[in-house]
């Protein structure tokens, strides 16, 4: 069962937590202050798709690597929650 992990806040051990939480086929969506962790997640070994909420990136003037992240608006966020079997907000 594929899970969309929606990260919402800053956490010093976020990358490590993602590695522990994610299974193959899961997705990770950065939103809110979790967007500040975008560079740390480049190196996570799990095969999770990486997404970021464009509006929250813009609000924080974050220039994200679009080769790594698929950036979505709120309509895209809604579609992601349908694409995955469940959504967990961290």
């Amino acid at each position: 069962m594929a899970t969309l992990h929606r990260l919402t806040t800053r956490h010093p051990e976020l990358a490590e937590l993602i590695n522990r939480m994610c299974d193959e086929g899961d997705g990770v969506l950065l939103s809110g202050d979790a967007c500040y962790h975008h560079q740390q997640l480049h190196y996570i070994p799990v095969n999770a798709a990486l997404y970021a909420l464009q509006e929250d990136l813009d609000a924080r003037a974050i220039n994200i690597d679009r080769a790594v992240y698929d950036c979505v608006d709120f309509d895209g966020f809604v579609e992601l929650t349908i694409q995955y079997d469940k959504v967990v907000s961290w």
Binding site: F74, D75, V78
Partner: peptide
């Protein structure tokens, strides 16, 4: 927190998309 605002934006999008 910005979470309630995000929830409202999410809800508005979902409803507008016909969900």
């Amino acid at each position: 927190s910005g979470e309630p605002y995000a929830a409202w934006r999410f809800a508005s999008s979902a409803l507008r998309l016909g969900h």
